[in-house]
Amino acid sequence: MSSTLTVADVERIAALAQLELTAEEKQLFTKQLADILDYAEQLQAVDTSGVPATAHVLGEPVERDDAERPSLAIDEAVGNAPDPASAPGLFRVPRVIG
């Protein structure tokens, strides 16, 4: 299925991934992703009927008590914002509607 990867497929994936690719990137990635997916096709030959999936290699995650503990101060939490808001403790974003 991967050998049929098209520029339109790449555009669809880029939209899902929130990446505004250039025309050159779309061409390049179409070829490179098809190569990688073709290589991954070899997995289809492995018999995995009845084989469970491994998402991680540990048993149950370790839990901790749901207890209060110190957190970052607000000015530290927003200190790396690329566009600090004029009011303290906020992030500024471009308009969402329109």
Partner: peptide
């Protein structure tokens, strides 16, 4: 891009789930 593709509808089972099974 590759990761988004293998997780996307229609390709999840063939790529991502298959890979997790072979990981086992």
């Amino acid at each position: 891009m590759l990761g988004t593709y293998v997780l996307s509808a229609g390709y999840y089972d063939a790529y991502y789930l298959k890979a997790q099974q072979v990981r086992t």
